[in-house]
Amino acid sequence: MGKIRVNNIRVHSNHGCLKEEMLIGSDYRVDLEIHANLSKPSQSDKLSETVDYVHLNNIVKEEMAIRSNLLEHVAKRIVDRIFLELTMVDKAEVEVSKINPPMGGDVESVSVKVEYSR
């Protein structure tokens, strides 16, 4: 078993329940950690035998481009796509953070983290 992390994927999107968030959008950060058996690619040195982190990054960018009210919903969609497209992945943890959320206070970010296993 092994882990692959893709940290601090930065995107701009229009998630949220407030009208301003839907129109103007906000900046987001996404962090991924996936678990898979990495013993074969560690021996073979073949990209085709591992989880391609470029593919992971593309899944995140594509799912973040689809507007949702809740970060929980976006995070679950990302996990669902990972499990659908990357059969090697046994477990996925996704954290979606809204940077500088419109909360009427000085808040750096709010985050939702989900973890699912096959």
Results as ranks from 00 to 15, higher is better:
I9E: 01
K91C: 09
S13E: 04
N57K: 07
D45T: 03
L38Q: 00
S48T: 04
P102Q: 12
V114I: 15
L56T: 01
Y116D: 12
E115Y: 08
N8K: 05
D31F: 04
E93V: 14
N8A: 04
R29W: 07
H73V: 14
R10H: 14
R10Y: 10
M22S: 12
E63T: 10
K3A: 02
E21W: 04
R118D: 02
K113H: 10
M1Y: 08
S39G: 00
G2L: 01
S109F: 15
V60D: 06
L71Y: 07
V94M: 06
A65E: 06
E108F: 10
S26T: 01
K76F: 11
I4D: 01
R118H: 05
S48Y: 07
V110I: 15
L32Q: 04
S26G: 12
E72T: 02
K46A: 06
E20T: 12
S13F: 03
S44E: 05
D52I: 04
E20V: 14
G105H: 13
A92E: 00
E115P: 05
L71P: 05
N69Y: 12
A65P: 11
V11S: 07
D106L: 15
N58Y: 07
P41M: 01
S109K: 15
V30N: 06
A65L: 07
K46P: 01
D90A: 10
N69H: 14
V114Q: 01
R81A: 02
M103A: 13
K40V: 13
Y28L: 05
L86P: 03
N57Y: 07
V51L: 01
E63Q: 15
